[in-house]
């Protein structure tokens, strides 16, 4: 862990203007609103949040697909917004992207061979036989064997799991150093999910990738990453190692989340879950102060609804944005 950080996100804001015909701007959706974190090469981190929490927007900002309104994404010490087009192309070759819907992520009119060849052709890698070699290796790595059978296939001929493996093969064929996986298994069947996640983990370990696993599912994150960042309403409310976070969740939202996640247990049927009332706020008009305060069981009037909590670090490496930890105490 002595490595230099590979990726640094510094006070990142991504806003979307809502356009309304004839009425000018109808407002700004603050999809990511002041997010900071640092990740090292070879690390596997999960960004956990509900839909609409801004986690996918964060992923796209890291991938350079969104333009931040404020703040920076810094890769290897180079801020993305300062990259020239040529350097941007280099940056894109340094990252892989795995999307949620494997079928949608593959052009339906291209064969597997062409799909995998596209990044190589675009980045002018190797000669034709060299590219073919790379494509075959990539397919072998994701265990789509015999390779011959899969090369000429079109996406619709593959099962969901196989499609997602093609996506993974494509995302790693440029041998990137950063892999962003946005809900890579949420559209797959339970029995296949683990397979895909194991594959991602294997790729991450084999190539010493920085893996950012975006998910709503804390339980899978637990098994496949070392660090978890919890996102709520466009902000990161807590970040810690998996053990710290699960054994000792600090933020009231994280606690509620953990409590709400069911396990296959017949006891469940007999008990009611303790769920915080209400729903996540609108990102058009987020609440003042801490964004969780209207739902928070530990709400402190005059503090939580007034000032936004900064990140506190009550334990080493365990950051939490909550006024409860202003003085650094740790409840357990």
């Amino acid at each position: 862990m002595q490595d230099e950080p590979l990726l640094e996100v510094r006070d990142l804001h991504v806003w979307f203007g809502l356009r309304r015909w004839g009425f000018g701007h109808a407002g700004v959706v603050r999809a990511v609103d002041g997010v900071s974190f640092t990740l090292r090469p070879g690390e596997a981190a999960a960004v956990v949040g509900e839909s609409g929490s801004g986690k996918s927007t964060l992923a796209k900002a890291i991938l350079g697909l969104n333009r931040p309104a404020k703040g920076q994404v810094i890769f290897e010490g180079k801020p993305l917004d300062s990259l020239k087009p040529r350097e941007m192309r280099w940056y894109r070759s340094q990252l892989g992207y795995v999307q949620q819907d494997p079928y949608g992520a593959l052009p339906p009119f291209m064969s597997v061979r062409r799909i995998l060849g596209e990044p190589l052709v675009i980045n002018k890698v190797g000669s034709k036989p060299e590219r073919e070699q790379r494509i075959r290796e990539a397919l072998e790595e994701v265990k789509l064997t015999p390779v011959e059978d899969f090369l000429p296939k079109f996406p619709h001929m593959l099962s969901g799991g196989q499609q997602q493996r093609v996506v993974i093969a494509r995302s790693t064929i440029m041998q990137p150093r950063l892999l962003v996986a946005d809900e890579p298994v949420s559209m797959l069947d339970a029995s296949v999910r683990v397979e895909i996640l194991e594959l991602l983990q294997k790729q991450q370990e084999a190539h010493n990738l920085l893996l950012i696993y975006i998910t709503h599912d804390l339980s899978t994150a637990r098994h496949f990453v070392q660090r978890i960042l919890v996102m709520y309403a466009a902000k990161i409310v807590e970040q810690a190692s998996v053990e710290q976070l699960l054994d000792n969740p600090l933020h009231p939202y994280t606690r509620a989340l953990i409590a709400a996640i069911p396990e296959p247990d017949p006891e469940n049927a007999a008990t009611f879950k303790d769920v915080p009332p209400g729903e996540p706020p609108s990102l058009l008009h987020p609440p003042t102060g801490c964004r969780f305060h209207p739902r928070c069981p530990a709400f402190m009037k005059g503090i939580c609804d007034v000032k936004e909590p900064p990140d506190f670090e009550p334990q080493v490496g365990h950051l939490v944005a909550c006024w409860l930890y202003e003085r650094g105490q740790v409840e357990s």
């Binding site: 894109r92 052009p107 596209e118 675009i122």
Partner: peptide
């Protein structure tokens, strides 16, 4: 579509996206 986004992520240029990714989809 996600695949257009993916192609941007691996660096496909505008012309390539239009001619090789968008047009064939509609044929």
């Amino acid at each position: 579509s996600p695949y257009i986004e993916a192609s941007r992520a691996y660096g496909a240029g505008n012309l390539r996206i239009i001619l090789l990714y968008m047009v064939p989809r509609v044929i």
